[in-house]
Amino acid sequence: MPPGFDEAGRNVCITGTDTGGDMDEHTRQRIFKPFFTTGKMERGTGLEAASAYGMIGNQGGDIEMDRERDYGAAFRMYLPPSGREIPGETGSTADVFTDRKTILLVDDEDINIEVVREILELLGYSVLAVQSGRDAVGLYRQKKALIDLVILDMIMPGMGGGDTFDALIEINPHVKVVLSSGYSLHGEALRIMERGCSAFIQKPFRIEELAGKLAEVLGGKS
């Protein structure tokens, strides 16, 4: 059975289009390869399509892309339906949001901010998002009483994840931080964990994995 389909052959399809320049067949075949880019090589370049492909694939889905000269590209994202019923209302809107936790999301990539913010909001969290370690430290200093947990990207230009974590624990020694990286738990990530970081999650991650990790950290002792 093709990825993105349930046992009945159904799927949820999300379509997006662009009107960019022409793309040859060689480029089309490599569009989802990590670090492949037709532009200048800079930090992070070439990861957006690969990250999206990995995230959707981890949910049992698939991405297809069609290209037509002079008309741009069409991307179709297939996801299997969850099969869950939409819960009815159990109380007032005020009751739903009374205990909502707030997460500070720190990541320098636009696509990661957009996708992870949406996932967190679907899981019932309020989200504050910044794209640099310096901004994260500044915002946390201002709103530490509001922020319950920080999801921190390890590799960022300027002030990286390690320095950002050190600055956060100077503000609050009990800050709860989930370190996020595309690399496995070794080297710099392991050293940050040894300095007291609450948990580690490797990108791209499944929604269930992130939900479980957050529940574990927020439910534990500070």
Score class of each variant (00 low, 15 high):
Pro3Asp: 00
Phe5Val: 01
Phe5Asn: 02
Ala8Phe: 09
Asn11Pro: 01
Gly16Ile: 01
Gly21Met: 11
Asp22Phe: 15
Asp24Ser: 14
His26Ala: 15
Thr27Leu: 14
Arg28Cys: 15
Arg30Met: 15
Arg30Ile: 11
Ile31Leu: 13
Phe32Asp: 05
Pro34Lys: 12
Phe35Asp: 15
Thr38Ser: 15
Met41Trp: 14
Arg43Ser: 15
Gly44Val: 04
Gly46Glu: 04
Leu47Val: 09
Leu47Asp: 06
Ser51Asp: 14
Tyr53Asn: 11
Met55Asn: 09
Met55Pro: 02
Gly57Pro: 00
Gly57Ala: 09
Glu64Ile: 04
Asp66Tyr: 08
Arg69Trp: 12
Tyr71Ala: 12
Gly72Val: 05
Ala74Leu: 08
Tyr78Gln: 07
Pro80Ala: 11
Glu85Ala: 15
Pro87Glu: 15
Pro87Gly: 15
Gly88His: 11
Thr90Asn: 12
Gly91Leu: 11
Ser92Ala: 15
Val96Thr: 12
Asp99Asn: 14
Val106Cys: 06
Asp110Val: 07
Asn112Glu: 04
Val116Thr: 07
Leu120His: 00
Glu121Val: 06
Leu123Ala: 04
Gly124Phe: 10
Tyr125Asn: 06
Leu128Met: 12
Ala129Tyr: 02
Ala129Ile: 03
Gln131Met: 15
Ser132Leu: 09
Arg134Ile: 10
Asp135Lys: 01
Val137Met: 03
Leu139Trp: 01
Tyr140Gln: 04
Arg141Met: 06
Lys144Glu: 00
Asp148Ser: 14
Leu149Gly: 04
Ile155Trp: 12
Gly158Gln: 08
Met159Trp: 02
Asp166Ser: 06
Leu168Trp: 05
Asn172Phe: 02
Val175Thr: 07
Val177His: 02
Val178Arg: 01
Leu179Ala: 04
Ser180Asp: 01
Gly182Ala: 08
Gly187Lys: 03
Glu188Tyr: 08
Glu188Arg: 09
Ala189Leu: 00
Met193Leu: 09
Gly196Glu: 01
Ile201Leu: 13
Gln202Ile: 07
Pro204His: 08
Pro204Gly: 10
Arg206Trp: 07
Glu208Tyr: 08
Leu210His: 05
Ala211Glu: 11
Ala211Asn: 11
Gly212Phe: 10
Ala215Ile: 06
Glu216Tyr: 09
Ser222Pro: 09
